[in-house]
Amino acid sequence: MLLILCLSNGKIFIDELGNEVRVEKVERIVSLAPNITEIVFALGMGEKLVGVTDFCDYPEEAKKKEKIGGFINPNVEKIISLKPDLVIATKDGNDPVAIERIKNFKIPVFVIYPMDFEGVIRTILSISEILGVKEKGNILVKEMKRVAEEIGMKIKGRKKKRVLLLYETSPIIASGPGTLADNLIKMAGSENVLSDSPLRYPKINLETAISRNPDVVIITEMKVGSESLKGIKEAFRGKVFLVKGDLINRAGPRLIYGLEEIFKILHPYEE
C-alpha cells in the first residue's frame, strides 16, 4: 500500500487493487472477512471493530461483535446502519457488487488481496498503516518473518517430500497451485503433488489421490466426514495428519502457526 497524499481532512491510500481510498480518523471499522478481523485484533485495534461476519470466530472477543452477515453475501443495509468510517474487504471472496454498494454511501472501502505468505505480510503492514499503528504492524511482521526464516534455514539440504493437502474429504477437495496451503508446503521444503493442476481447489477421487503417491497427506479440519476420512486413512496408512484449517486457510497472523504445523509434520524429529 502507498500513502500518496496527506490532506487536512484525512489521508489518501492506495489499496491492494490499486484504488484510491480517502480515510479520516478511524474509529468504527467493519471487517468483511475472518482474516481481516484477526489482523485488526492482532494490531490491538479490536475495540474499534463495530461489525464482523458470521464466520469471524477468532479471537474469542470477535464472537461478541455485531454480525453483518456472511463472508460472500454481507448485509449491506446492516453495514451502513453501523456507520463505519472504514470497511476492510477482500477480493478473495467478498461480493464486488456489495462492495460497490457500500462505496455508493460514501463509506471508504479498503480492499486487500493476499495470496501467499508475502502477501499476508504486505496486508498486515497496509492495515497497520491505515489504522495508524504502523509500529505494531512492523513488530508483528518481524516476528512472522523470523519464524519463517528459521524454518527456511532448517529445510536446507533436506529431501523434498510429496504432500497431498485436502480441505474436504467428501467429496475430496484438494489444494492445487496458488493457494495459501500450496505456498506453505513449499516454504516447509516440500512439494504439492497437485501443483500441476489447472485449478486452485481441484475436486479429485480417491484413485487420483493414490496415483499421485504422496509421502504425506494433510487434512484440514474444515469439513471432515467420518466415513470418507476412514477410507483415506486406510488408503494412506500412517501418512495422514490433521491440521486446524484456520491456520492454513486464513490469510492472517496465524498463518505462521500453520507453517510451523506443516513443518513439524514433514520433519517430526527436528528440534
Results as ranks from 00 to 15, higher is better:
50 V>P: 06
40 V>M: 01
187 M>G: 02
131 L>N: 05
109 V>P: 03
128 S>R: 07
203 K>L: 13
152 G>H: 11
90 T>D: 02
258 G>M: 10
270 E>T: 13
85 D>C: 07
162 R>K: 14
75 N>F: 03
262 I>S: 12
118 E>R: 05
147 V>T: 15
140 L>V: 03
204 I>A: 09
179 T>A: 03
58 Y>D: 03
205 N>L: 07
160 K>H: 06
80 I>N: 05
60 E>K: 13
201 Y>Q: 06
95 D>S: 15
18 G>C: 15
119 G>I: 11
82 L>H: 06
188 A>M: 04
130 I>T: 04
267 H>P: 00
30 V>N: 01
84 P>G: 00
100 E>T: 14
260 E>K: 09
241 F>H: 14
9 N>R: 06
161 K>V: 10
203 K>Y: 08
197 S>W: 05
2 L>N: 14
205 N>Y: 04
130 I>V: 15
259 L>C: 02
224 V>L: 05
254 R>C: 06
130 I>E: 02
113 Y>V: 02
60 E>F: 13
162 R>S: 01
185 I>C: 07
24 E>F: 00
135 E>Y: 09
195 S>D: 12
113 Y>G: 03
247 L>P: 02
45 M>F: 07
175 S>W: 06
36 I>P: 04
151 I>C: 10
5 L>Q: 12
238 G>L: 04
221 E>W: 04
78 K>V: 02
211 S>D: 12
31 S>G: 08
8 S>H: 14
56 C>T: 13
240 V>D: 07
93 G>T: 08
270 E>V: 14
76 V>A: 06
5 L>V: 12
66 E>Y: 11
72 I>N: 14
168 E>R: 15
99 I>L: 15
81 S>K: 10
100 E>R: 12
193 V>T: 10
223 K>P: 00
21 V>N: 04
3 L>F: 01
82 L>V: 09
255 L>S: 09
198 P>G: 11
61 E>N: 05
6 C>W: 09
28 R>M: 06
54 D>K: 14
74 P>W: 08
96 P>Y: 11
226 S>K: 14
166 L>C: 05
206 L>S: 12
43 L>S: 01
117 F>V: 00
167 Y>M: 10
241 F>E: 08
239 K>E: 08
37 T>W: 02
223 K>E: 05
127 I>M: 03
77 E>Y: 02
177 P>E: 12
88 I>Q: 09
135 E>D: 10
193 V>C: 06
264 K>H: 08
23 V>C: 13
93 G>M: 01
268 P>L: 09
162 R>F: 08
200 R>G: 07
65 K>Y: 02
133 V>W: 00
87 V>C: 01
186 K>H: 13
216 V>E: 04
140 L>A: 05
31 S>V: 01
168 E>S: 13
151 I>V: 11
260 E>A: 04
157 G>Y: 08
57 D>W: 01
116 D>N: 15
87 V>A: 08
162 R>H: 07
214 P>Y: 13
242 L>T: 09
165 L>H: 10
148 A>R: 11
107 I>M: 08
180 L>R: 00
184 L>T: 02
35 N>H: 15
138 N>A: 12
24 E>D: 14
34 P>F: 08
250 R>Y: 03
218 I>K: 01
156 K>L: 15
188 A>S: 15
97 V>Q: 14
17 L>E: 13
118 E>D: 14
145 K>V: 12
259 L>P: 10
